[in-house]
Nucleic acid binder design. Sequence first.
DNA 1: TCATGAACTTAGAATACATACA
DNA 2: TGTATGTATTCTAAGTTCATGA
Length: 783
Amino acid sequence: MAVIWRGNTQDRLYQDTISSGGGNSHKHKDKYKDKEHKHKDHKKDREREKSKYGNSDHKEFSEKKHREKERIKHEDVSTDRHKDKHKEKDHRKEEIKPKKEKENGFASPHRIKTEPDNDHFYHSPKSLKRQRDNDETEFKPKKIKIENDRVDKKAKKRKQDEVRGNLWILYLIYFSDPLRERILMRLFLVKDIKPKKTQKNKKGEVADGKKKAKKEPEEKWKWWEEERATDGSKWRFLEHKGPVMAAPYETLPSKVRFFYDGKQMKLGPEAEEVATFFAKMLDHEYTTKDAFRKNFFKDWRKEMTSEEKSKITDLKKCNFNEMGEYFKAQSEARKAMTKDDKLKIKVENERLLQEYGFCIMDNHKERIANFRIEPPGLFRGRGDHPKMGMLKRRIRPEDIIINCSKDSKHPKPPPGTKWKELRHDNKVTWLVSWTENIQGSIKYIMLNPSSRIKAEKDWQKYETARNLKKCVDRLRNQYREDWKSKEMRIRQRAVALYFIDKLALRAGNEKEEGESADTVGCCSLRVEHINLYPEKDGQEFVVEFDFLGKDSIRYYNKVPVEKRVFKNLQLFMENKQPEDDLFDRLNTSILNKHLQELMDGLTAKVFRTYNASITLQQQLKELTSPDENLPAKILSYNRANRAVAILCNHQRALPKTFEKSMQNLQTKIDAKKDQLSDAKRDVKSAKADLKVRRDEKSKKAVETKKKAVERLEEQLMKLEVQATDREENKQIALGTSKLNYLDPRISVAWCKKWGIPIEKIYNKTQREKFAWAIDMAEDDYEF
DNA sequence: TCATGAACTTAGAATACATACA
DNA sequence: TGTATGTATTCTAAGTTCATGA
């Protein structure tokens, strides 16, 4: 077969071209001129529409909705009074409209709105009609409840007791916080927050302490019903309190000693601090690794005084055991603290959260994801990271850039210090940034996934993936054609794309050698990462993949591929060394440029989202049977989720207690089986009794015993389902796909279709992140 | 055109917290 | 009530993508 294929004239010509190309590592990558037509018109179109917020679906949705709202407002006016009001509003709107456009374009600095100029965003949800994503069916948004209605009463009672006890403390914190005060003032000043609504804190507790308000579900801000900026700006107003700095180092008590070469040695505070970082990790595998020890020792010595440096020359002679024991004891002591002491810590954490954990972005209070500066420590790179063990230095205010509105109250640096810079850049979403010393990369403080700015982007991501669904067949035909191309670069691009599509591989950027662990993705695969088998295990054209991917997670897979792919791979590998690039004429930027020409917004990453979501949808359809009970349906969901996690290679380390917990579960199952057989015996004897006595009492006894059997059978089934689920899941991480790859509307629709409470699929945090989807998707949603 | 770096998403491990059970 | 175990949250590393400037 190979001979026939290579015998093709075009291919032979092509072979000649390649062999003259010679080199095969990415350093030699060819700069062949693209003979293809460049799709110039398409590019121009794209540029015209190129705005981050320009996703057509989303934009269209907002516009349609806005028009719809306006229409409803016109129709809703039934009384004269209303009419007058309406007139007034319209009049006001006419006045405001140009100003609004100006605002969107940032011609003038943002001011907190004190006029009700955005009234139209806050119609009663009941009267609101709007277009759903792509179809034309009517959509009625519903109020979102923050608290889960189905919370177990017992747990609720316990919580209530605890809450009552602590409420006054939280109450004090809540109102003593100056930022909150400002936030509340702002919120009440602007019309888009209804002042009468009771504010709840993070835990859903009522801040003003009124019981009555607790019963009313809080109405959450539905940003997805509003218009978005179209000028590339991320916000108009941003105010926050800055980051929480890492706690200063506290020197060890004198009883905790460090020994060098068997002799006690007192370290200066700088060297001691770094030594404690190592001591805290003594039980960890890291401290046994050569690279870790070497890097640590090198950086540690930099912190030593010259005297320390001259004495401490060999890490093997260092004894950190007392330090290690001290930290272990501290951690034990923390666990054994009294309830009161634990509460004090909780209260302090809550105070910090309230003060630093929120910001105001465009009139709304939003939760910040990571408001603490990363504390100093030893770098824990994944896999064989060449820099593991290096000292992550302490970040000072002088290293920190603050980003906020010009007209906001700027965060203050700690007394006697200065920020590196105060910036007012509304084209970015971060609040705080600094450069870390290990890789020289920038770290950011950003908003929580539930925030508008993050969730909106998430929604957009799934819309792009849905767009891919519309044209994926065309794209697949195209890359199949490209397998036959005269040009090597096009063949490589097409085969790589096939892998990205079929196997959900990551794009695979080039990495600087020696800077990080040796991991690869699709474009950076090397010859040594695949093996070709014309026949294996009864299948033809099998490719065996074996490489380390992101986070040094091993990807191992044997897949039969199409014959042309196989032949192309043979061709790509010809005359190459194992360490040479498989796709030497390709990189992620070439690939993404090509994808961009095929579909607006398409990048390699979109295939992962698309394939993950479509797989979930298909699997749910396949696996859910209508007559199953709730636990079985949830098992089906988890199995569908698992199929995606396997596709995306989301693995986790086997939990340390896995064997034990499985054993415990098995014991429970065995015990339940015993109970069940006893109960069945009871039914038999009760029936025998009934035969003899033939009275009502005996009849009732039979019924009761039968019910007991049914109950036990159900309990047994639940346990068995749990065991199956756990076993199937032991090395697979479901969370990553659930959080990042699966269009939440698929899950919401599935829940609605089968009457599954959403709480069974998404926990509280996940429900907050996917609030838009929970509100939006109906049972017939199609990805 | 390419290299670089900024910005943002995705990832598993570690830790904190909640719940079940003895 | 204390302990074991499971789940949620936090942490931060490690990716991808895109803009920018030489």
